[in-house]
Amino acid sequence: MNLIWGLDGEVAAVICQAAGVKGREFGPSRALACIDNGHLIGGAIVHDWNPEAQTAEVSAGFLRRRAPHRAIARVLAEYVFGQMDCQAVILRTDSRNSAVRRFAASMGGKEHILPRVLGRTASEAFLIITDDAWASSKWSGRYENTLSTDAA
């Protein structure tokens, strides 16, 4: 599998498809695509950057269960914490999505559940990962570069 920056519209469509959401717009953003055997299988989008607060949101989705989570986490962390100089990253997911919640917790994420944000019967989990939490997590460390250049 390869990770490449780019394919913003295609990655957004995959994230929406994986989440069962229609028509989500991410505005100004940057996408990290996960390509397997020439096929886009998922990715992540960095969006809603707030330079004053030094925060950004990350949304991700995959069409296959198996994805290079460690590689994606490291590339995203290098981008948001290293290049964008963010002090915190925000992930949002349905509170029933235990896989994403466990993944964020393993990276030092702190969780806040907001009731009814996704509708009358659905709560949303806001997961905050700080640069300090990331640096001390088991996920940080040296990344073996499989990152390709931006897609044309």
Rank of each mutant, 00 (worst) to 15 (best):
M84R: 09
G108T: 04
H112D: 09
A33R: 09
S106V: 00
G20I: 06
V46P: 02
I72T: 06
V11A: 07
V46T: 05
P115V: 00
R96F: 06
L40K: 12
A19V: 00
L63F: 04
C34R: 02
A12H: 05
A13W: 05
I15Q: 04
A104I: 08
L40A: 10
G23D: 14
R102D: 11
D94E: 08
Y79Q: 10
A60F: 14
A56M: 11
I41S: 07
A99C: 03
S137T: 07
E10A: 14
R74P: 00
P28Q: 15
R92S: 13
M107H: 01
N97I: 03
A125M: 08
V46S: 02
G109R: 05
Q87V: 10
I15P: 01
D131V: 09
F81H: 01
V100W: 05
Q17R: 15
G9Q: 14
Q87T: 09
A67W: 05
T149A: 15
D36E: 15
D94A: 10
L76H: 04
I129L: 10
I41F: 06
A12P: 04
S59R: 11
F62W: 08
G38E: 12
D8Q: 12
A18C: 09
V46H: 02
T130N: 08
A122D: 07
C16G: 13
G23R: 09
A105G: 11
R30I: 15
Q87K: 12
G20R: 03
C86Q: 05
A67G: 02
A122M: 08
W139R: 12
T130I: 07
N2Y: 12
G9I: 01
I90M: 12
R120K: 10
L114G: 04
G82W: 08
A135V: 02
T149W: 14
V14H: 01
W5Q: 03
N37D: 14
F103G: 00
E10L: 11
G9C: 02
V14G: 01
A13E: 15
G42L: 09
D131M: 03
P28A: 14
E52S: 07
S98N: 04
